[in-house]
Amino acid sequence: MKTANCVRAAVLAASLCVSAPAIAQEKTGNKEGFSLKPGTVRIVLMRPVVDVGEQSTGGMFEPNADWTTQARGYLATALGQAQSKLGNVVVEYSDQSTGDGPLVTQYSHLFNSVADSVIEYQFFPGNRLPTKKRGKSFEWGMGDGLSRLTSLKGADYALFISTHDEYGSTGRKVLQIVGMLGGVGVTSGVHQGYAGLVDLKTGELVWLNADRQMGGDVRTLEGAQKRVTQLLEGFPGRPVEVAAAGN
């Protein structure tokens, strides 16, 4: 009886909480006027940033090294299969003994922050920064420092990829059910994926596809292939017939 009362109280209290309204959110963006013709440029696929783990009841991320290793392997395979279908020459990044590696890794992490900012302050209309609201502006970048890296010489664009997956723990799933009963939206699991194309001459982010709830279980090859298909949806310069066949 006591337990039942507590559950009732929790549900009632939960129903009083105000959940965030579902607001349509953009998932892709590109610099105004940017387009890419097939067979005209050389793109370097940067080392993907991959993190996989569990989401605790309180929503904290708990990394899982085994899952991350699995996902890295499967995503690399899936990206290898996809890169020949992108309409332009896409080569995997190689340090070429230049010593650029640590700095390039920093750029990959910075890309994540830039993509986070685009989602938070541009794709989410209710939270858009007033200075970013004007016209159809999509003005994001990482500076022209990449153009000075020896290991990227001869390339026109860098394709950054990052995925971050948190699989809901049992406790989180229980919380989701309790929330559902009380009319409060509690998400269980985070499955975010970002893919962005950066102009190596200017450092401008010219195309971004970013979603915080992507599909595909990256711990399996099939799931990783699905994730990569979603990440590269609408990739610039991709021939239409190939894009259709790849979906």
Partner: peptide, 25 residues
Amino acid sequence: MLRVTISIIALLAACSTPVLANSLI
């Protein structure tokens, strides 16, 4: 049990994100 109930309420409250607009300076 009361503690569990309070924890659930706190977690649910934390999960609902308020939507507020940013402003121009």
